[in-house]
C-alpha cells in the first residue's frame, strides 16, 4: 500500500513546491472544526498535538495550549477520536500525531498503534523518544504500516545522522534551531544546507519547523525544504482570535509557501 506520505510528497514534487504543515493542539478550541477546515485552507500535512502536563520541548504558546486542552478534559483517547473524525472526511491528507512518550507509554505501545492505525493516523512524532529509545513504539507502529517520524536538529552531526536515518520513516522533521517550539527560525541558508544533508542521509523528505511564524519566513524556508511546519503561530491565532482566525492564518501561510520558488534540489 502506498502511504499517504509517499503520495503527498510525490504530488508536491510534481508541483515543484514545498508543502505546508499545520500543527494544532487537540482539545484547544474547536479542534474538530479546525481540523476539518485545514486541507481546504491549504495544509498539505496536519500535525495534531497530544497534550502533556510536562512538555519540555515546547515554548509558551504550545505549553499553554496543552494546559488548556487538559483542563478541558482532552486525553489521548479523545485525540484519537478527533483523528478518526478527520479521516472520515479527508481520505488523502497525511495526519501525524505529535506528543510525548508518557501518555503513549501509559496507553500501551501496542494498543496505541492499533488505535492510531484504526483512526487513520499516518505517523507519530514522539519528542522525547530518540532513536535509542523508540524501538518499542516503532515496532508496534510498523505492524500497522505507520511510521515513527524522527527529528534532526542543528546539533545532529554526520555520525549522529546515521543513527537518525536508521529506522526513520515518512519524513524527517528538521528542527531549525536549538530551542523550544516557537523560539525563532534558524538562518535560512544554514537550514537549506542542513536539509540537503538530512535528505541525502535518510532518503526521506525533510520538513522544517520550530519557530516559523510569518509568511516571509515560511516562504524563505519553503525554498530549501520539502515542507514547512507552523505550530505556535497557528495555536496562538486559534486561542486569540478563534477557529476562523487560525484558518485565515493557515490560508495566508500556505499561499506564501505555494508562491515560493523552489531552489533546485
Amino acid at each position: 500500500m502506498t502511504s499517504r506520505f509517499t503520495t503527498t510528497f510525490a504530488r508536491l514534487r510534481a508541483e515543484n513546491r514545498a508543502g505546508f504543515v499545520a500543527y494544532v493542539m487537540a482539545g484547544d478550541g474547536d479542534t474538530e472544526a479546525l481540523l476539518d477546515a485545514l486541507p481546504g485552507a491549504g495544509a498539505d500535512v496536519i500535525e495534531l498535538g497530544l497534550p502533556f502536563t510536562d512538555p519540555m520541548a515546547d515554548g509558551a504558546a504550545i505549553q499553554e495550549a496543552g494546559q488548556r486542552a487538559l483542563k478541558g478534559g482532552m486525553n489521548t483517547k479523545k485525540a484519537l477520536q478527533l483523528a478518526r473524525a478527520f479521516r472520515a472526511k479527508h481520505a488523502d491528507t497525511p495526519l501525524v500525531l505529535m506528543g510525548y512518550a508518557n501518555p503513549i507509554h501509559h496507553y500501551g505501545w501496542a494498543d496505541f498503534a492499533t488505535d492510531a492505525a484504526a483512526a487513520g493516523v499516518d505517523g507519530i512524532i514522539c519528542v522525547d523518544l530518540p532513536p535509542e529509545e523508540d524501538k518499542p513504539l516503532r515496532d508496534a507502529l510498523a505492524a500497522h504500516g505507520l511510521s515513527v517520524i524522527r527529528l534532526a536538529t542543528p546539533t545532529t552531526d554526520d555520525e549522529r545522522l546515521k543513527t537518525v536515518a536508521e529506522g526513520s520513516g515518512g519524513f524527517v522533521y528538521y528542527v531549525s534551531t536549538t530551542g523550544v517550539t516557537g523560539a525563532g527560525i534558524g538562518a535560512a541558508t544554514d537550514v537549506s544546507a542542513a536539509v540537503a544533508l538530512v535528505r541525502k542521509a535518510t532518503g526521506l523528505p525533510v520538513v522544517v519547523g520550530f519557530g516559523v511564524r510569518t509568511e516571509e519566513a515560511a516562504a524563505e524556508i519553503a525554498k530549501g525544504s520539502d515542507a514547512v511546519v507552523v505550530g505556535s503561530a497557528i495555536v496562538s491565532a486559534n486561542h486569540d482570535g478563534g477557529t476562523q482566525a487560525a484558518i485565515d492564518l493557515v490560508k495566508r501561510l500556505s499561499a506564501a509557501v505555494r508562491g515560493a520558488m523552489r531552489d533546485a534540489s
Binding site: D128, P130, E132, E133, T155, R160
Partner: peptide
C-alpha cells in the same frame, strides 16, 4: 534510559 529530545542527544 535516555528519553530526551534529539537536540540534547549529542550533549
Amino acid at each position: 534510559g535516555r528519553f530526551v529530545a534529539e537536540t540534547l542527544m549529542p550533549n
